[in-house]
Design a protein around this nucleic acid. Sequence first.
DNA 1: CTGAAAGCGCTTACAG
DNA 2: CTGAAAGCGCTTACAG
Lengths: 337, 337
Amino acid sequence: MAEVMNELNGRNPTLDDVARTARVSAATVSRFINNPAVVAQATAERIREAIAATGYIPNLLAGGLASSKSKMVAVLIPHLVDSMFNATIETMVDELSAAGMNVMLGLTGVSTVRTAELIRAALSRRVDAIISTGPLDAATIELARRSPALFLQVWELPEDPPGLAVGFSHKDAGRDIARFVVSRGYRNPHVVTADGSRAQLRRDGFVEEWRTLGGAEPTEATVTIPSTFGQARRVFSDMRRLDYPSDIVICGSDSLAQGLIVEAQAAGLRVPEDLAVMGFGNSAIAGEMRPTITTVDIDGARIAREAIAAIRRHAASGELEHRSIDVSFRLIARESA
Amino acid sequence: MAEVMNELNGRNPTLDDVARTARVSAATVSRFINNPAVVAQATAERIREAIAATGYIPNLLAGGLASSKSKMVAVLIPHLVDSMFNATIETMVDELSAAGMNVMLGLTGVSTVRTAELIRAALSRRVDAIISTGPLDAATIELARRSPALFLQVWELPEDPPGLAVGFSHKDAGRDIARFVVSRGYRNPHVVTADGSRAQLRRDGFVEEWRTLGGAEPTEATVTIPSTFGQARRVFSDMRRLDYPSDIVICGSDSLAQGLIVEAQAAGLRVPEDLAVMGFGNSAIAGEMRPTITTVDIDGARIAREAIAAIRRHAASGELEHRSIDVSFRLIARESA
DNA sequence: CTGAAAGCGCTTACAG
DNA sequence: CTGAAAGCGCTTACAG
């Protein structure tokens, strides 16, 4: 072993070094690493020992270049702080790890320009798949369409996705919320929308259905992404200042809803008796807040699993699927509304 | 342009394709891409056009293999959900993007085994640097020490780091909290510690200093990582059930503190009059909660900037620094304690 | 089940 | 400022 280390002379051991100490060809070592079942027992044992003796760590740059498979997946999200996607991403990373793949993380900040740059960067690294959230410009859609990498959009169902989509209809979710609000007898909703395309779709669905059901024009407010807890303070004080008749606030996220509850309570209001609040996303806090928060549950873990399963199918077969998987959503009535 | 596309015959354009259409050598195109200043104006223009015409996207796998620089940095954190590191990571990702580098994200789940696997995976991809949070086993420390990649530990200052460390003394932070609690006249702290090595250090610092200052033995509780909002419920009900005389709860994170405030208020207690609460981390909610949360601020953005600056220095010079950067911490007294 | 050899698409001294 | 050529460390038909 000492001799092996010595002849290396400081450089990293390569496949050839392992092959030499195991007295086999490089091809056989490569096979052992990528598909152990295909080499003979005795040979496998020698190679195993040689790898241990040399401290060999494969070079995936070289491997990827030769095989044109990087075993890397790009995951593109807007933010990390106060993000609705974190649980989904966490499941994705875990599932990818289990499949021997690593993830390249990109933060788009809801910018189509940044998104396009990150997609190019991902393609530069010859990722096997790109998982994207958020809007794409026309050129990027075209790039995605031509891409040899599997292109996945998650948490949404675009009209004509360039690749695969795993998500749900945000517009339908908005409509469902409207029906729920009517069924509970609320009359004056205040709709708080974040400045993202998905949030906008939910808002549109809500307002459309609300009108259809004969509701009076709702009041509205907007917040920027990431919609932090703190923006709730401004929204609430605006409502008071402008003397809105609101009996329920429809929030674009659970953290915003949580913030509104805190503000309302601090102002001496009871939730939901004096002011009801709805969230979106069913984050952990929604079920644990006092009062517990009425919200819409999205099965992020399922989105992640469907996405990764598609990537593994693609890795195995090489075929590019092109369809949409609707995981739907579920309104959860709790105490806050 | 159509001809250029045609002769490609479906495959991705390579550096050679660009070179051919620009009527220069591949070497010159490579120089243009990596250091435009070094090629002549007129040549540069021709290459620029050729790149646009062919739709060339460089292959960083090949580039990395040839140059043994991957322009990729591995970032290893325990979790994404309810994590104290997210703001730090977000700054890191932004800074790395600006420097033309991408990030490989690894989730360790506080497991040294997972951490070791991820470090091997990162080395397989020949990352330029590894940024790690959390404990390392002996073999991994040795691996990090030998690693050609820059090894950075952040949010902590280990005794004898294998590479660079950017963080602060958790034990000192715990001591500071003890002094603050004494100065405010609290007598019966309840210390809630998460099951991580850093949280444990803060707890030890607190208890040590508290005893030194003559305090009575504090009561204690532990929570698991990630310490979600919901664990606050159990901690609070245990305190009540066991009839602790607590006048202040020292929490391991702001979200835990927030949960305790909500629980205490729901039980009819006033914070801080009936029960004071302290957090840790100074997340956005800490300053926006009602009451605002007394906590300890860590300058995560500075940690990120120092780390990325070191990586850029390393990329430029190739030298491996080996030292510790203490960014310290700052106790922020607000309303909750 | 195993080996020899070509090739993946870049970068980088070296020479001019 | 530019080009020819070797080499980075793997994988994968092809042959046996």
